[in-house]
Design a protein around this nucleic acid. Structure first.
Lengths: 174, 174
DNA sequence: ATCAGTTGTTTTATTAGCAAAACATCGGTT
DNA sequence: AACCGATGTTTTGCTAATAAAACAACTGAT
């Protein structure tokens, strides 16, 4: 069975990686500086002003960014909601990778950044439930994590990529 | 603190989504048909032969795909290793989303497909450890999952995106 | 008032990834 | 031999996202 019908949904993502970071840059600049202009976004993303100008023009046209009477940028209601969902997913994924899977902070940050805009709202929500419970005070969760981490220390023998994950899981097919 | 230094690593990914699926298509075609030509890849991915031809030419140049004396394609040793790591990550993510987070199979498939080529080997490995233990016979894992799922049923009240994930987790900063 | 620096935009070019169309080749039928 | 269908490649064009460079406009200092 070919995954032909699935793999193209990647591009159909309305929020690209680039757009996600233009929007979150505006959000963070508003927090840090109190304002966000084209140049500030360009500096934050380390791209040229010209590139930022073009992308932000498109975002204004899409109604995700609004422009002040004096060229000051702001997120629209829609833009704000998108940024919220992206930052929420990023935070959850980062926390899971770093605090549960014990990946170093940089790795967690990088992988969370790559993935944040791709996860569906459902996936983000379920992952939030999961991580929240997993890191809660619940004794079962505590015990589970403790056991997992102790196993992690012993399990340095696995190599990656594993030759046959399906067999490891007793998966029936792919 | 801007994530300026991190977000650009996205493009620096040596394996793009498109390349990942060209390679895995060859792998699956070899399994299913016993061979893989340009047209077969194009059909599997539902793109034109011309597009597949160009992409595969680049992959031959990169040494990930080799061509038979009669235009039959095969994965090189490098290509094979890349496909293995991608399929392993896809399988683990899909299993986690579907069997742990209880997302429906289609959603799990789509999200796994979007993410598979972006996860680092470290992340993939740790996630494999985690899911393997989580779905094992270990009584602590069993009990943890049972409790999580029972909470899931009660917890239909959460809305997504959550307004303030950081507060939910008592995160200190971002 | 001029000059320098910052800002925003536009134009030109590049790359990845696709489609569409033209073209060439090969294999089997008739 | 002529034709047809499948195959592979190339060319042209498109979109998104970038850089680079030219340009215009505003700001502040002298």
């Amino acid at each position: 069975m070919m995954a032909s019908d699935v793999w193209k949904e990647y591009e159909s993502n309305e929020i690209s990686h680039s757009v996600a970071h233009h929007l979150t840059a505006i959000h963070e600049l508003m927090d840090d500086l109190g304002y966000a202009r084209v140049s500030d976004v360009a500096r934050a993303l380390e791209i040229t002003r010209g590139s930022a100008s073009l992308t932000l023009k498109a975002l204004k046209a899409r109604g995700l960014v609004v422009e002040d009477h004096n060229k000051f940028l702001k997120l629209s209601e829609d833009g704000r909601r998108i940024v919220d969902s992206i930052l929420a997913k990023r935070a959850v994924v980062r926390k899971f990778l770093n605090e549960v899977l014990k990946l170093d902070e940089h790795q967690a940050e990088v992988d969370a950044c790559k993935v944040e805009h791709l996860l569906s709202a459902q996936t983000g929500g379920q992952l939030l439930h999961f991580v929240h419970f997993l890191l809660s005070d619940d004794p079962t969760a505590r015990q589970f994590l403790a056991e997992f981490w102790s196993k992690l220390d012993q399990n340095e023998e696995w190599q990656w990529p594993v030759q046959d994950v399906d067999q490891l899981f007793n998966l029936e097919s792919r």
